[in-house]
């Protein structure tokens, strides 16, 4: 059985809303509101959601650049939301991040050598020669020419810059990389290249990814398990097969039906299906969300499938799921 590398327990990130004469905190924006999931060693975990769903905030909270309001992030048995534990476990070295916009995440005034060496300098004590070898190795891994170390970020194309971002993230031999929309700014063929490199590196170094994306096609390609986020909470969680073949929550269905399909023959049917799901979503909001519009807690409906449902519906769903399986 695969070992869990990180466990997120009831994670909450709230932003205060200040108003009134004294500018007191009157309410909170619940960006992440009680999220639970865990990532196994060496796997890719997909986190899907639309803009504003809190997926990036979750990622940032895991890396530690966002202040956590409540809940725990368990890594090697310790809660890393506490700075002292982070230090003890070398958490900041083990967990790295790849950002969406490669232009703004690479310092334009530094050469590639310094960009990639920065995390190495932070955590390791290497001589100049050793360090240069290391950077060369890393560039090699992501398929960049060796003369790249003397260049600056603007001299590269978007795909190459994203690969430099990958090389920098891998520099400290991390166990987990949070990849926040790593390819959404890239062209199709370049995206394929970056995804391939990410996969190769994963196999080589047994790295786990938290792959945050809004692109369900890419997540389907990359991850074994995934979670779908809406309004700061998880609406559905499970293995890829379960979620793509037997989606239960109406929001998941809506998201899946909205992906454009490369199937010209059946596009009318696809459109009808989408409209039908959209209608159901509009009409049955109350059924799937509680009276405050909040997503229900997750209920298990199958061995590898959890859905946010009120309890009575969960039992129904479980039965349906089982029947569906038997008829398959």
């Amino acid at each position: 059985m695969a070992k869990e590398i990180i466990q997120i327990k009831d994670l909450k990130v709230y932003y205060p809303i200040r108003s009134g004469f004294w500018n007191r905190i009157t309410d909170y924006v619940r960006a992440v509101d009680g999220v639970n999931f865990s990532i196994n060693e060496g796997e890719t975990y997909g986190l899907i959601g639309e803009s504003g769903s809190g997926k990036s905030t979750t990622g940032k909270a895991i890396v530690g650049v966002e202040k956590v309001t409540g809940g725990q992030i368990m890594y090697k048995g310790l809660d890393v939301t506490k700075a002292s534990n982070r230090k003890k476990l070398d958490y900041n070295k083990d967990v790295q991040m790849i950002f969406q916009d490669s232009m703004s995440s690479l310092n334009p005034r530094k050469r590639i050598e310094d960009i990639i060496a920065e995390p190495i300098r932070n955590f390791e004590n290497l001589t100049t020669d050793q360090e240069r070898d290391r950077v060369q190795d890393l560039l090699d891994i992501v398929g960049m020419p060796s003369d790249a170390i003397y260049k600056y970020p603007h001299e590269f194309s978007g795909g190459q810059r994203q690969r430099i971002g990958v090389a920098r993230a891998v520099a400290t031999n991390p166990k987990l990389i949070v990849a926040d929309e790593p390819t959404s700014a890239l062209d199709l063929s370049v995206q394929a290249q970056v995804l391939n490199f990410m996969k190769h590196i994963q196999q080589q170094y047994n790295i786990a990814y938290l792959f945050i994306s809004h692109d369900l096609g890419v997540v389907k390609h990359m991850s074994e398990n995934l979670a779908i986020m809406h309004r700061g909470r998880l609406v559905e969680l499970g293995s890829r097969e379960e979620i793509y073949k037997h989606p239960i929550h109406i929001y998941t269905k809506r998201l899946l039906s909205a992906i454009p399909q490369v199937d010209v023959e059946h596009r009318e049917e696809h459109k009808k299906h989408r409209e039908q799901v959209e209608k159901e979503f509009e009409e049955n909001q109350g059924k799937w969300y509680d009276k405050d519009g909040r997503v229900y807690p997750l209920q298990q409906v199958a061995p590898k499938h959890w859905v946010a449902l009120p309890e009575d519906m969960a039992q129904e769903a479980e039965l349906e799921e089982r029947e569906e399986k038997e008829s398959d």
């Binding site: 063929s189 995206q191 394929a192 290249q193 391939n196 096609g217 390609h221 990359m222 890829r240 490369v262």
Partner: peptide, 24 residues
């Protein structure tokens, strides 16, 4: 054909995506 091939949509995740050599 290359462009269509590089779309991530196959069910087999172990397979590499098709990459068009070189750059535009």
């Amino acid at each position: 054909r290359s462009l269509l091939n590089s779309m991530p949509q196959s069910d087999d995740t172990d397979e590499d995506l098709h990459v068009i050599k070189g750059t535009v």
